[in-house]
Design a protein around this nucleic acid. Structure first.
Lengths: 214, 214
DNA sequence: TATTGTGAAAGGGTTCACAGCG
DNA sequence: CGCTGTGAACCCTTTCACAATA
């Protein structure tokens, strides 16, 4: 039995489809075609059908897809629609912004712990939470059954903090620090690197006529 | 003459190489091999050489690459190492975090204008800047020669704000709002979508054994 | 000799086109 | 008849392997 596989781009598209389906459902639409889903997402109907076919067949030939059902199936596939416990490492401005971000909680992501190494920040209240010493990360995050860790520390602290997250049993990390984290095989990592995005824009500005492909 | 092309992933790797070269240069290293660059970046030496070969040949066979020269050539290629004027649309917490982010200015990205639609925010001081009415975006950003726009508004305001950026002559936009922006061909767009990254992590947590590729 | 630069091969994601089915 | 589901074709990216060369 070979491990099933999905590309990062397909996964991102599924997230988009889910968003569109939510909008369609809110608008009371009963069914939707792969063509409609495609044009909203800037892709093709064949792509939509292929993406969905990774997980089964959800449509009716000649009719399209039942909106509420596909929405809920997709939510199940992506693993949203349940609660996930999140810990923030780094009580700086970016951490605060993420913590305050409402779409966050609305989608089931609950920040249950915040950590920092700065004694002036430790002990501060963040709404119902208290900023904890990052030294307590491994034990405290485990106690609180944290499943997802978000790294919003400076680059030089990122690896250490990520290691503590792994010690806490966390197996999914979203990293905003501009550092290349080395993690065990079984831990999922996504990087959000502002510098890289900006440099890609600079490249495009500097090289008019070049095509920056997918 | 067909338009040259580079993949998004190659571009991201170039940013990484640049970072490593800066570190090597700071450490006083004279030369570096594609192999060393590769292992730092989690890729292969052949990949490094292919990536660089898009833009010329910078190495010496048998020796490797001269660190300072390759660093400066790469910086030139990516278009960093000069000043870029940036405007922020959205004076919320995320905007503030980006504005305060130091690595930002250090890399030549200067926030020269901040816009918002909230009357309570308009007129506030942000360091040397004053939050301006978003209605003034098109004219003010043009006056200030803004080249890169960053959208940190709620989703429902994002398209409108992006349109104003285009009116201001901005041709590079970094979008943090969870909205699909429709822009003219000649405008470069990069999306940073927190929900999508988190959902990809949820997927991985929910589907142990699956491989999320690329 | 060590390492680059690069055609050729392999791999994998996207598009095509049509059979299958409601 | 319309639209899905999918094998096959296509295309782009990565990897391989080796000739070129400092």
């Amino acid at each position: 039995m070979t491990a099933p596989r999905i590309s990062d781009s397909a996964l991102r598209r599924l997230s988009h489809y889910l968003r569109f389906l939510e909008a369609f459902e809110a608008a009371g639409r009963e069914t939707v075609s792969s063509e409609e889903l495609a044009e909203r997402g800037g892709t093709t109907s064949a792509q939509v059908r292929k993406d969905l076919s990774h997980f089964g067949s959800f449509g009716k030939r000649g009719l399209g897809y039942p909106v509420p059902e596909l929405r809920s199936r997709l939510a199940g596939i992506l693993g949203v629609g349940r609660r996930w416990n999140v810990a923030l490492a780094g009580a700086g401005k970016l951490g605060a912004a993420l913590h305050a971000y409402d779409g966050f909680r609305r989608r089931g992501f609950h920040v249950v712990a915040v950590f920092d190494s700065d004694p002036r920040k430790i002990g501060r209240r963040w709404g119902p939470l208290t900023v904890e010493d990052v030294a307590r990360l491994a034990t405290s995050a485990r106690e609180k059954a944290v499943e997802i860790g978000i790294v919003v520390t400076p680059a030089d602290a990122a690896q250490e903090v990520a290691d503590a997250m792994v010690d806490a049993g966390i197996t999914a990390i979203l990293n905003f620090a501009p550092a290349k984290l080395v993690l065990p095989e079984n831990v999922s990592l996504r990087d959000v690197n502002l510098a890289i995005e900006l440099e890609a824009l600079c490249f495009a500005l500097t090289h008019e006529g070049w095509i920056v492909g997918r």
